[in-house]
Design a protein around this nucleic acid. Structure first.
Length: 327
DNA sequence: AACATTGCCAACCGCCGGTTT
DNA sequence: GAAACCGGCGGTTGGCAATGT
């Protein structure tokens, strides 16, 4: 079991792998269907780190998602197909849109038999299937426009995308992410010790009236796109000195800063707050495990690189990605 | 040739606001 | 008015190919 889980895709947050019997009880709490394969499934309950550190197990069970992974598959979650789209799925979605038009994404599954949720369908259509989409790299002109508009509006990808016909917000987001990565590695930035991570800007709500006022700025931005990329960079740098430093400045809420460290103590103290009957159906479940079985798992876990602990009569094994509760 | 790093891109997730029931 | 549903948005992740060492 431990070897198998080591190769699972890592869910976000901290995950608790529980035996299927406990999973069934949790499933009742969060009202999800385990499906016909559940008797042979390992249940993975994952929760965001902040939930864990707030020590609110009740909240965990309300908000967490249970991923009922078939052994070794990990593809299906709560019944919906995930991952890359196949040509036949694309065709089904295109047929649906041709027939019923855009929107009503949640009906796609019912009408076409496509096993994708509405969000996934919408995203696929908007980012890939919609007619008129341009493929491939942004032209220097487009890149110039994107960069200028980003200095104007920050991370409002969809707004920026509206000024680039055929380009999606996802493309622009990806482009700028790469763009900032490159800047991050440029020697001059390293000298200054700043990080060029896309700044997270809390934009004040912008009314529609405000947009026309920016038209000349947009025009300027678009005309700027006619210059070479090197010219463009020079211009951006100049503007940075003129009060738009945020474009290349390190922002405190980057990814590293957002990562909350979770220590073993955090986990242990959280485990202290769990009512055993909530998690594993009560202590009697624990008693069902003969000592020999526990020792067996202990050996397996340590052999697989997991550490072991015991809180409130619950044995647990953990590494940096997973925690197993023995129930 | 093998391994590590980087760049690109598709897709998923959580949150939020608007709409419907 | 509250709850449920839906769609849109921005943030993030992970796979894979290209490139570098």
């Amino acid at each position: 079991m431990f070897d198998r889980v080591k190769h699972m895709r890592k869910p976000k947050g901290v995950s608790f792998v529980v035996p299927h019997e406990s999973l069934r009880k949790l499933a009742k709490v969060v009202k999800i269907s385990l499906g016909p394969d559940a008797p042979n499934a390992v249940g993975v309950v994952s929760c965001p780190v902040d939930v864990l550190t707030k020590g609110d197990p009740a909240k965990l069970f309300r908000s967490s998602e249970i991923l009922a992974w078939k052994m070794g598959s990990g593809i299906q979650e709560q019944g919906w197909t995930k991952g890359p789209w196949t040509p036949s799925e694309d065709k089904l979605l295109c047929d649906y849109v041709n027939l019923y038009g855009k929107g009503r994404w949640s009906s796609v599954a019912k009408c076409t038999g496509l096993n994708r949720n509405g969000k996934s369908c919408r995203l696929r259509w908007v980012n890939y299937l919609k007619p008129g989409l341009k493929r491939g790299q942004l032209t220097p002109i487009e890149a110039g426009i994107v960069i200028e508009l980003h200095t104007l509006w920050g991370n409002r990808w969809s707004t920026i995308a509206k000024y680039l016909p055929g380009r999606t917000d996802n493309e622009i987001k990806n482009y700028l992410r790469t763009h900032f990565k490159k800047k991050d590695r440029s020697p001059e930035k390293k000298e200054k010790g700043t990080k060029a991570i896309i700044p997270k800007q809390k934009q004040p709500p912008q009314t529609q009236e405000q947009l026309p006022q920016e038209n000349d700025m947009i025009k300027r931005a678009i005309s700027c796109g006619n210059r070479t990329p090197s010219d463009h960079h020079e211009q951006i740098t100049t503007e940075s000195q003129g009060g738009k430093e945020m474009f290349f400045m390190h922002h405190p809420t980057n990814l590293e800063d957002q990562c909350l460290p979770v220590t073993c103590q955090d986990v242990a103290s959280w485990l202290d707050t769990i009512r055993e009957e909530d998690l594993c159906g009560g202590p009697k479940n624990l008693d069902n495990h003969p000592k020999g079985v526990m020792d067996d798992h202990h050996d397996q876990a340590t052999a697989a690189g997991f550490s072991c602990g015991r809180v409130n009569s619950i044995d647990y094994f953990y590494n940096e990605d997973y925690i197993f509760l023995e129930g």
